[in-house]
Design a protein around this nucleic acid. Structure first.
Length: 873
RNA sequence: GGGCGAUUAGCUCAGUUGGGAGAGCGCCUGCCUUACAAGCAGGAUGUCGGCAGUUCAAGUCUGUCAUCGCCCACCA
């Protein structure tokens, strides 16, 4: 026997102990079960310079539960960990730290800056992986990857070159989303649209011939400096005679034409739109259709360019103010209207995004989207919950080309070189020595790097060794399930799907399990800017990882968001404490115990083992459907409501007063059932279950065994008898409580029932005596002197209380009970006299209802009889 | 403008093939009963958002309205 358990559950002590051992013994490597069927999850890589937040905690807990569960079933389970270099985010952090030293990245130069960023990465990498360990993540660290490591970089270059050669990557000058703070462009989905209060200004543009004005409406007057035309709808009668007329752009005196384009909505504003191809996505398109010039008046740093003439050098905001003043002076400001409008912001820093024209690299999406759409439509890739398939499809079906270049230094550099002599563009995996066309050695690599998600999209296969042909790739691709939150379906899930299909010829995963988002106690999304985030590490330091994990997966449906509430954390902690104490109780009674003796099972033993089998079946069935909360709840209820509240109490009878064989049987069942519960709970709360398991007697060397073997439902009849005994015990306790019988006082308990019940009472007599604190007897006929009574499923329960009964109170209580029973009986009778019900409901339902009606009828009669007797005395 | 989700006890939420409304917390009563007061025994509490429909039967399916939330969208 091991040392006794501490009196109180102290998570911090036990949690520190186990992870190093698990890791040391290699339990998390798939080779633990070399013959098993493979199971694989690739971890959504956290930002290497970030730290664990509550969303990660839920995400990784979910993955860990699935992985541990499969591993315990004997699967060759691999949870592959890794981190993401997180281009923009990491570069911004390093830039920030430089700023504190009064430096900017250009002071260092590209090479030194990257060196520094790698140092930064190394420093933070340890923190995030330590946090993952603290959480209990059972991933295989020997296979850990990083999106910028050599293998992943090879995969990136391979993919880029293949797409380029296939004509699916192109470079061109287009209007992109420019973040002046991050100093890079970002893709369309990285722009967050927020509604802001704003204005719509109506401005008059004079006709060149002096014949009056046309009025346009704009929310961004500073962009008028880049106007090249005014457009109206071709069918708009108001302007039909004016098409083709020349206009003069005020302040700039540029001559422009009034053109027509279907894009214009005649019902909006004045029906006339100023066209600014350099700074508006729609106008950019209009400009292309009409061969209009593109004028850039706002620069990359957010100030007006030389093209803005006298406004050059001003910030856009200053310029707007000045332009409005100038229009006003010229009496060309017709109207100022209050109007909210959408402002695009950089998802990372919140800076307003400016549409700017610049040369960028793009991936042509249409050919890649086709198979990716088909995979989800055919159900080859299944989304859980299913509705997310529609979200995914909606995006994929309307996809636009993906801008993949970023004006950053930290990332995968675009594998393209330009010849300084002949201008040849060379795209290949490794740096060329000379230009293949003119042999020049004046080659310069494209300065940009790729969007971080370009490499993340390859994660399910790049981490398994692609483009090499590895055993891991062969074994584990396609992976089983991808677990993530809905906010990165477009960023990541979609890109992995089309990348996997294109380069592996196979989907990257069978299932996509989308879990909820973590909200604060008030229901708001946790975020840095709101400052309402709760640090999971702080919580782990307070109550342990097990409590946090259990809290995160219980009490919420698969597709709903989760509010983080302290009470629920306490609830989880209390449950673990309960488990701890039940184990402590068991261990305290095992001094003379060793496995392998002969047992003499009785009713309670058969019942609890049957209940364990049922709990195991429910938990496993729920996990198969990704209903983690449901699985955890089934186990919680089993441990607390069945094992602790009933079985432990029933076992005490034999532990304390039984024969050696009876005591041994109770010990065996306690150990066996507790062991089974620990196994089932292990995926959810690995630390405490491991610790308790180590204290319990068991055979074999394995730390954790496979799932509890499911037996046959044979002993069900016996178990039903136990349920009746439980009901009788509850009723008797209820009577005691209502009659204020002091807790310690032994009472008398008489059961009146058909003799068919007597063998059950015989088996359960010690239970009845102990749990009701009574001396229990039974007979077919019993005429009580003074007693309170109840009725449960054919059994009359009497608690004789000579001289203690308040007659009026007992009468009132009986009347209330009778009324309740009568109500139920009448409800059922009405149902059973309904011809439609009898004719159409399934026979078993009808039979069940009839049985219940009889039961309530019997109860009603028994109680009325008792009431009559009471009134007679 | 489109789409999706939510609405169940005082609070937070379960309720997955339609068949007697549940949990945790809180509240009330009584207990420090040698596993656990982070506990034990008992108790009270609901027109399952409104209306209409399908059905023998609706928290569960359909329609509609209301409120809240999220996502997508090029209306200057």
């Amino acid at each position: 026997m091991k040392e006794n358990l501490a009196k109180t559950y102290s998570p911090l002590e036990i949690e520190a102990k186990w992870y190093p051992l698990w890791e040391e013994k290699g339990w998390f490597k798939p080779e633990v079960h070399p013959e098993g069927e493979p199971f694989c999850i690739v971890m959504p890589p956290p930002n290497v310079t970030g730290q664990l937040h509550m969303g990660h905690a839920l995400d990784y807990t979910t993955q860990d539960i699935l992985t541990r569960w499969r591993r315990m079933q004997g699967r060759r389970a691999l949870w592959l960990p890794g981190t993401d270099h997180a281009g923009i985010s990491t570069q911004a952090k390093v830039t920030e730290s430089l700023a504190k030293e009064g430096l900017c990245k250009d002071d260092l130069g590209r090479e030194a800056f990257l060196e520094r960023t790698w140092e930064w990465k190394e420093k933070h990498h340890g923190r995030i992986t330590h946090q993952l360990r603290q959480l209990g993540s059972s991933c295989d660290w020997s296979r850990e990857r990083f999106t910028l490591d050599q293998g992943c970089s090879e995969a990136v270059n391979e993919v880029f070159v293949r797409l380029y050669e296939k004509g699916l990557i192109y470079r061109g000058s287009y209007l992109v989303n420019w973040c002046s703070k991050c100093q890079t462009n970002i893709s369309d989905i990285e722009v967050e649209h927020k509604e802001q209060a704003g204005h719509l200004w109506h401005l008059r543009y004079p006709f060149a011939d002096g014949s009056g004005f046309i009025t346009v409406a704009t929310s961004r007057p500073e962009t008028i400096l880049g106007d090249v035309a005014v457009a109206v709808h071709p069918d708009d009668q108001r302007y039909s005679g004016l098409i083709g007329k020349k206009l003069i752009l005020p302040l700039v005196n540029r001559e422009m034409e009034l053109i027509t384009d279907n894009y214009v909505d005649p019902a909006f504003g004045t029906g006339a739109v100023k066209i600014t191809p350099g700074h508006d996505p729609n106008d950019f398109e209009v400009g292309l259709r009409h061969n209009l010039p593109q004028i850039t008046v706002i620069g990359k740093n957010g100030t007006m360019t030389a093209a803005a003439g006298k406004y050059a050098g001003m910030t856009a905001a200053e310029c707007r103010k000045r332009i409005l003043e100038d229009f006003s002076i010229l009496d060309l400001l017709a109207e100022t209207e209050e109007r909210p409008h959408n402002v695009g912001e950089c998802y990372r820093c919140g800076t307003a995004v400016e549409p700017l024209i610049s040369p960028q690299w793009f991936v042509k999406m249409a050919p890649l989207a086709g198979p990716a759409i088909e995979a989800a439509k055919s159900g080859d890739i299944k989304f859980i919950p299913e509705r997310f398939a529609k979200v995914y499809l909606g995006w994929m079906e309307n996809i636009r080309d993906w801008c993949i270049s970023r004006q950053l230094w930290w990332g995968h550099r675009i594998p393209v070189w330009y010849c300084g002599d002949c201008g040849r563009v060379i795209c290949q995996k490794a740096a060329p020595d000379s230009c293949p066309k003119c042999s020049s050695t004046k080659l310069e690599q494209d300065p940009d790097v790729l969007d971080t998600w370009f490499s993340s999209g390859l994660w399910p296969f790049s981490t398994l060794g692609w483009p090499g042909e590895t055993t891991d790739l062969n074994d584990f691709y396609p992976t089983n399930v991808l677990v993530t939150a809905r906010d990165i379906i477009f960023f990541w899930v979609a890109r992995m799907i089309f990348s996997g299909l294109e380069f592996m010829g196979q989907k990257p995963f069978h299932h996509t399990f989308i879990h909820g988002l973590l909200l604060d106690a008030g229901g708001q999304k946790m975020s840095k800017s709101l400052g309402n985030g709760i640090d999971p590490i702080e919580i782990i330091d307070q109550v342990g990882a097990d409590s946090l994990r259990f809290m995160l997966v219980t009490g919420s449906a698969p597709d709903s968001d989760i509010r983080f509430r302290e009470e629920r954390l306490e609830g989880a902690r209390n449950f673990l404490n309960k488990l701890w104490n039940a184990s402590r109780f068991t261990l305290m009674n095992l001094e003379d115990f060793s496995c392998g003796g002969e047992e003499e099972p009785e009713l309670a033993d058969i019942w609890i083992e049957e209940r364990l089998r049922q709990a195991a079946a429910s938990a496993n069935a729920a996990l198969e459907k990704y209903e983690l909360g449901e699985a955890a709840r089934a186990l919680y209820e089993f441990v607390w409501d069945e094992f602790c509240d009933w079985y432990v109490e029933l076992a005490k009878i034999r532990l304390y007063k039984g024969s050696p064989k009876q005591r041994y049987t109770a010990q065996s069942v306690l150990v066996r059932v507790l062991t089974g519960a620990l196994q089932l709970l292990h995926p959810f709360i690995p630390f405490i279950t491991e610790d308790l398991w180590q204290h319990l007697p068991h055979q074999g060397e394995t730390i954790m065994l496979a799932e509890y073997p499911l037996g046959k439902g044979e002993p069900q009849l016996q178990a039903q008898g136990m349920e009746l005994l439980k009901d009788i015990i509850r009723s008797a306790r209820n009577l005691r409580a209502e009659m204020n019988v002091p807790p310690g006082k032994e009472a008398e308990l008489v059961l009146m029932a058909d003799p068919q019940f007597f063998p059950l009472f015989e088996q359960g007599q010690s239970y009845l005596n102990a749990l009701c604190q009574a001396v229990c007897s039974w007979s077919e006929v019993y005429i009580p002197d003074q007693a309170v009574s109840a009725h449960v499923r054919g059994v009359d329960i009497f608690l004789p209380l000579k001289g203690l009964i308040d007659l009026e109170k007992e009468q009132a209580r009986l009347e209330k009970e009778i009324k309740k029973a009568a109500g139920e009986r009448q409800r059922l009778a009405a149902k059973l006299s309904n011809q439609g019900f009898l004719a159409k409901a399934p026979a078993e339902i009808v039979a069940k209802e009839r049985e219940k009606e009889e039961e309530y009828g019997a109860k009603e009669r028994a109680l009325m009889e008792r009431l009559a007797m009471l009134q007679g005395t």
